[in-house]
């Protein structure tokens, strides 16, 4: 019933994940599958574009926490972009801005990987 979509695309050496709709305990496994695919392909530079994400619960936040260290150990990272205020507020409540980079625009985030 929950309406969630995840799409993966490559921009140069960076993988961009577009998330859309509602990310909760029901839909978080769809996002995990994409991260597992990236690990299989040894793609560690990830930007998550939140432009169309309407809702996130801790189950969704947990996915980013579960994968970020592996990405960083392999000279990559998970960076966030285009987040709506209501979604950002949840990340903020849990202290994510200390540990993750947030960008207004996807290109800005991508360019941080390609100096």
């Amino acid at each position: 019933m929950a309406d969630f979509n995840v799409n993966l695309r490559g921009v140069g050496s960076v993988s961009v994940i577009d998330v859309k709709g509602y990310l909760d305990a029901h839909t978080a496994p769809d996002l995990e599958n994409v991260f597992n695919k990236l690990l299989d392909q040894k793609q560690f530079k990830v930007v998550v574009n939140f432009n169309d994400l309407k809702y996130i619960s801790s189950a969704g936040l947990g996915v980013f926490m579960a994968y970020v260290e592996t990405m960083r150990e392999n000279q990559g990272d998970i960076k966030f972009s285009n987040m709506k205020e209501n979604v950002y507020n949840i990340f903020d409540l849990l202290g994510f801005p200390i540990l993750y980079e947030f960008y207004k625009d996807e290109n800005e985030a991508i360019h941080k990987f390609i100096p």
Partner: peptide, 22 residues
């Protein structure tokens, strides 16, 4: 939860209850 510790330990649970209180 202390997010920095969580991050080190790759723990992802316990956030829900913390959020509810907030």
């Amino acid at each position: 939860p202390n997010l920095r510790e969580y991050y080190k330990q790759k723990r992802v649970g316990g956030l829900g209850m913390f959020l509810m209180k907030k």
